[in-house]
Design a binder for these strands. Structure first.
Length: 887
RNA sequence: GCGCGAUUAGCUCAGGGGUAGAGCGCAUGCUUCACACGCAUGAUGUCGCAGGUUCAAAUCCUGCAUCGCGCACCA
């Protein structure tokens, strides 16, 4: 046992223990272990990512689960890794290339560009991993994976091939969500609807067969007018019945387009007439399909206008073109008016620009094992917490759309499809190659490249990053590892990726491993700032967790965040929480420092001394420690991490320090007997050594540090590897424990008295207790809790008139104060107290006088009410007696 | 539009048919020999609104309001 430094300095301590754990293989999972397996796969952060508070919350929870599982004697695998994050990573490297060399990726070419991304990944990619280590995450770093590792890539290609052969993956020309900045298709999940303050343009098209007569149309997108191939009205709309089948004149480029009838058109909206642009709107596309309309593409991939017939618009950005088109209409006298209008516009999640619906050739997946995935959660084979997410999950799966899995990027898993060279050459590129029309010999789909590569051209696209992520729970493991650790036990993730990731993993698990990928899913809260706003870079309201750890320690950050993180609702983050975590660590540290300053125990056995040597305080704290362990068990089983944190906090601060330590302080003074000292130290050690274990998952570093310094863990051993004892520390001593409670309550009343008479700071006051409980023998018992003074226990006492007094759980307490006694003040104080107690008695009486209550409420409840009434009225009697003695 | 949350002390949040809780903040007093990242004491609430069920509702039910989220969308 070495001496503790004066103040707790987490930074050095945390670093040192983390290294020690790593060097000693504490995080390593042994596949040949006899122990029961427990596993978590980390939600792989983007390889380009840096740690934010969401990661802190999420990974701390995983670490807590992992460390607790180890304490329960399980063999734990927490499998870490990172995600290649296609668009995000490629964008970063492209930006660097542009800024430093003024080049685009096409300037350097595909292979050279990919080399640069790999270089970039090697150089900057590990930041978040280092940050997770700083946080104390007990991941098995020997097994760190990356979604573009060779083995992992093999899985991705194999899965693609299997699903292709099964007919679930197909290529086709479809309306997709196109990001004009990233220049790639996106899945529906990557589109975020945002309300916009837009304008609704009312314009008119002239009827071809009736010059001077117009059809009024409303639109938010006049810039797509050149792509209109019809105007639609609702067939039930009487206003337009006579228009159907006639033609109107599209103003530019001038053309005659038909007025068609389609149910899709909302009679109520705008003018009731809808311009149809099949190339640039999903609904219009469908209408176009129904009516066999021409598809006129007037927008380039980058969002600029593609319309050589309108030179003044051609090449303009789509938003510039919108204003220009409106101006043109106005010039032509065809613009009626413009209204302010709020609508929802889909934005690219990554580039944060409006999506352009665009027809292009893409690969799609019809999801496998949808039914199994729905059933797994519905039947409770997979448990969601909070459970309500199950509904959202089921709803999504029941309305599931095919997944656009191809991306027009370079960084990612390239589609393992090759086309016969002649076919591609004939079409001048594979882009428009219709796979469904290819002969079997003209397409090659395999995880292995063709043996005669010179005859083939590979599909240029890569797959959506999530098409690799969805394999994460099993593609990260080899066969032996899967044997021991698959399916995994818990998955901890944010509800924002329920569709992106969780649902897809479940389907992939069933399809490729014939089994669910995890048994429990815990959805973490979303962290907001103290004003309830989302954390975002642009708002600058997202504190850097590393700064917080520098200031408060990783343990402080973990504990502060977890203690108040509610389950199922958003968390409002305030740095004050982290400060509280740091303060808590300091409190714990000082409690241990205090004990250490009081000398060594003969031997740290972790066991309590024999019962006969224990005083109520000892028994009480040991009992409470056992209760704490039980209650934590309950809270953990419900994944109520905030509850666990709060209980750990209350035990140490309120029960252990405020009550127990204050009560037994006297035992540790030089004046105390050797036996008293030894007993108290032994109790301290027995309780604290277990408490440190209970706290360990939340504050791994400080608990490991203190356990070592206090001698609770032998040299060379680690707290994190110790199994929590299965036996209780103490049992069947509830009576003694409640005596301690009574004394604490009494001491509280006595402090009240001192405070009320402004003698709180004085140490020379003397209390007198009469009618004491028979077990209250040692009058010094209460003293430590009073910070000085003297106590005398008498069987009878004639208090001077006006002596401050109170009725407590152990008897009547008097505070004789020479020269301070004011009879009138005491009378009024007692009157106030009497009124309070009397009102309690009245309340009880009223309740007991209510026949309905007595007859119908459970007997147990009525008895409790009676006991309460008796207690209060006894108190009332005593108080009235005291009051009477004052005259 | 459909669905899901939230609404409790000044703030952040627990709780949950039977005496309203914590931390912070606030007020007052403490350089008490572990800790001022501390100790003690104290003040503070029509538990969003309106109905209903019940002996009893902050808690359960039904509406409503406000805030937030998800899904679907009318150009």
């Amino acid at each position: 046992m070495s001496e503790l430094p004066k103040a707790y300095e987490p930074q050095a301590v945390e670093k040192q223990w983390y290294s020690a754990w790593q060097e000693n293989g504490c995080f390593h999972a042994d596949t040949s272990s006899e122990k029961e397996g427990y596993s978590i796969v980390i939600p792989p952060p983007n390889v380009t990512g840096i740690l934010h508070l969401g990661h802190v919350l999420n990974n701390t929870i995983q670490d807590i689960l992992a460390r607790r599982a180890r304490q329960q004697g399980k063999e734990v695998l927490w499998l870490p890794g990172t995600d290649h994050a296609g668009i995000a990573t490629q964008t970063k490297v492209e930006r660097q290339l542009r800024e430093e060399e003024g080049k685009t990726r096409r300037d350097v070419g595909r292979d050279a560009f990919l080399d640069r991304v790999w270089d970039w990944k090697e150089k900057h990619g590990g930041i978040i991993i280092q940050q997770l280590k700083r946080l104390g995450c007990s991941c098995d770093w020997d097994r760190e994976r990356f979604t573009m590792d060779e083995d992992y890539s093999g899985w991705v290609a194999k899965v693609f091939t299997d699903l292709f052969n099964e007919g679930l993956i197909y290529r086709g020309k479809r309306m997709v969500n196109w990001c004009p900045v990233s220049l790639t298709a996106l899945s529906d999940e990557e589109v975020i609807m945002k309300p916009q303050n837009s304008k609704l343009y009312f314009m008119k098209y002239e009827l071809v067969d009736a010059p001077g007569e117009f059809l009024e149309i409303s639109t938010t997108r006049p810039e797509t007018l050149m792509g209109d191939s019809a105007v639609a009205v609702n067939p039930k709309d009487e206003r337009f019945a006579s228009y159907i089948g006639r033609k109107v004149r599209r103003p530019f480029p001038e053309a005659e387009i038909e007025i068609i009838a389609d149910d899709h058109v909302d009679v109520e909206f705008g003018t009731g007439a809808l311009k149809i642009t099949p190339a640039h709107d999903k609904a219009d596309f469908e209408i176009g399909q129904r009516h066999g309309l021409e598809i006129i593409d007037v927008i380039h991939a980058d969002g600029t206008i593609n319309c050589p017939d309108c030179p003044d618009l051609d090449g303009l950005d789509r938003f510039q073109a919108r204003r220009k088109a409106a101006a043109k209409l106005e010039e032509m006298g065809l613009l009626i008016r413009i209204e302010e209008y709020e609508n929802n516009v889909g934005y690219s999640e990554r580039a944060d620009v409006p999506i352009e619906p665009r027809i292009s050739m893409q690969w799609f997946l019809k999801y496998p094992c949808v039914k199994e995935a729905v059933d797994a959660v519905a039947d409770g084979e997979i448990t969601f917490r909070p459970a309500r997410w199950a509904k959202t999950y089921a709803h999504w799966l029941e309305n599931i759309q095919d997944w656009c899995i191809s991306r027009q990027l370079w960084w990612g898993h390239q589609i393992p499809v090759w086309y016969r060279k002649e076919k591609v050459d004939a079409l001048q590129g594979a882009e428009s190659l219709d796979v469904s029309n290819l002969e079997a010999g003209d397409i090659y789909v395999s995880a292995e490249p063709p043996s005669d590569p010179e005859n083939w051209v590979r599909d240029e696209d890569v797959m959506d990053t999530w098409f690799s992520s969805w394999l994460w729970p099993f593609a990260t493991m080899n066969e032996t590892e899967r044997g021991k650790f698959y399916p995994t036990t818990d998955l901890v993730t944010g509800p924002d990726i329920l569709f992106f990731w969780v649902a897809r993993m479940i389907m992939a698990g069933y399809r490729f491993e014939d089994e669910l990928p995890f048994k429990n899913v815990f959805f973490t809260s979303l962290i907001r700032d103290s004003q309830g706003r989302k954390m975002s870079k642009s708002l600058g309201n997202s504190p850097d967790p590393i700064d917080l750890m520098d200031e408060y320690g990783a343990d402080g950050l973990r504990f502060g965040l977890l203690r108040t993180a509610p389950v199922g609702t958003d968390v409002r983050f305030d740095e004050q929480l982290v400060a509280e975590g740091r303060n808590f660590a300091n409190k714990l540290y000082n409690a241990c420092r205090f004990r250490q300053m009081s000398g060594d125990a003969a031997e740290v056995s972790g066991q309590l001394p024999v019962i006969s040597r224990l005083r109520p305080y000892h028994i009480d704290i040991a009992t409470k420690l056992d209760h704490l362990a039980e209650n934590l068990e309950k809270s953990y089983s419900d994944y109520r991490f905030n509850d666990v944190g709060q209980q750990l906090y209350d035990f140490l601060w309120s029960e252990f320090c405020d009550k127990f330590l204050e009560a037994v302080k006297g035992d540790l003074r030089d004046t105390a007997s050797a036996e008293a000292r030894e007993t108290t130290l032994a109790v301290f050690d027995a309780v604290m050594s277990r408490y440190l274990q209970l706290l360990h998952p939340y504050m791994p570093h400080i608990t490991e540090e203190l356990s070592a310094r206090m001698g609770y863990v032998q040299d060379g051993a680690f707290l994190m590897e110790k199994t929590y004892p299965s036996d209780a520390l103490i049992s069947g001593e509830d009576a003694a424990a409640s005596q301690a409670e009574a004394i604490y309550a009494t001491a509280g009343r006595m402090r009240n008295l001192k405070a009320e008479y402004n003698v709180a700071a004085r140490k020379d006051v003397k209390f007198i207790i009469i009618k004491a409980e028979p077990w209250l023998t040692a009058e010094t018992d209460v003293l430590g809790l009073l910070a000085g003074g003297e106590i005398e226990i008498l069987t009878a006492y004639e208090a001077p008139k006006g002596t401050p007094a109170a009725v407590t759980d152990v008897g009547e307490v008097y505070l004789p104060l020479e020269g301070l006694i004011d009879v009138e003040a005491e009378k009024s104080r007692l009157d106030k107290e009497i009124a309070k107690v009397a009102s309690e008695v009245t309340k009880c009486d009223a309740k007991l006088g209510n026949a309905a209550f007595v007859d119908r409420a459970p007997a147990e409840l009525v008895d409790r009410e009676k006991a309460r009434r008796d207690e209060w009225s006894q108190k009332l009697g005593q108080l009235q007696e005291m009051r009477a003695s004052l005259g």
